[in-house]
Simulated assay, not measured.
Amino acid sequence: MRINKNLTGVIYIMELKYKPARNMDIEPIFKLNKALIDEYENIEIIDYQKVLLWVRNKIETHIQEYIYVIFNGKKVGYYYFHHTDGKMEIDDLYVFPQYRNMGIGTEILKKCISETNLPIFLYVFASNKRAIALYQRLGFEITETIKGSRYIMQRQGLFT
């Protein structure tokens, strides 16, 4: 539970709950991935069907490691936080549109940051300016550009 203050100075309590995703979450997570790819990726220069097959396989293979997020009794998003190559990766972080701008994404990221001393990285579409701004506010820096359409962003260790 975290106490927050909104732009008008009203204090409110942000209490998120986290539950393991289930097989029934595979299709919603896949649809969220596909929507982001459709919105931000240049689909003329990628093998679109191959990318979608890869995404579906990743989700199906790791669904037991995905987390769904609950706020006020409702499912509000998903994420997948996992160890890879001596670092932690935040993958498939989604907050449903009707729950954005409420601090939920920030709280999920702070939770992930507080859980490890390892460097944390993530991939973000270069044209997703809102997501990039959020990650930068929490100490992530762009460390690599991939094919002109995505960035790798990384931060070191615990939240300060």
Rank of each mutant, 00 (worst) to 15 (best):
N4Y: 15
H62K: 02
E44A: 10
P119D: 15
L16P: 11
K129H: 06
V55C: 08
I108A: 08
E41W: 01
E141A: 13
E60L: 03
L122P: 01
G139S: 14
F71P: 08
L32W: 09
Y99E: 01
G103Q: 11
Y94Q: 08
A21F: 05
R2G: 08
V124L: 01
E141S: 09
G73I: 12
K87S: 14
Y99G: 00
A21G: 11
F96K: 03
W54D: 00
T143E: 03
F81D: 04
G157Y: 06
K74L: 15
K19N: 10
K17N: 08
A131T: 06
K75H: 11
K110H: 05
F125Q: 00
Q156W: 14
L109F: 07
I146D: 03
E89H: 12
Y12T: 06
G77V: 10
Y135M: 00
T116R: 06
R155A: 09
N23T: 04
H83K: 12
N72C: 05
I152S: 07
M1K: 12
Y66F: 15
Q136S: 06
R137S: 06
F140N: 07
G73N: 14
R137D: 04
K31V: 02
I26Y: 02
G77N: 08
L138C: 08
L134C: 06
V124T: 07
E41L: 05
L93K: 12
Q98R: 10
I146L: 11
Q49I: 07
W54C: 03
T61W: 01
I43Q: 13
K129R: 12
Q156C: 02
G139I: 13
K58P: 05
T145L: 10
G148P: 03
R137K: 11
Y78G: 10
T160L: 13
A126F: 05
N101R: 14
A35R: 07
N117P: 00
P119W: 03
G9V: 03
K74V: 15
I104H: 05
D92S: 12
C112I: 13
L52Q: 05
T8V: 14
K75V: 15
E107L: 02
L36N: 12
N33C: 14
F121P: 00
D85V: 02
I108V: 15
P119C: 07
I90Q: 05
E65K: 11
L7M: 14
I90K: 00
H83Y: 11
Y94C: 10
E15R: 14
G148N: 01
S149R: 15
K31D: 09
E60S: 14
K129W: 00
R100L: 00
M1S: 15
I59N: 13
I29C: 09
V69Y: 01
R2T: 15
P119G: 12
I45P: 04
R137Q: 04
M102K: 13
I46S: 05
D85I: 05
L52C: 02
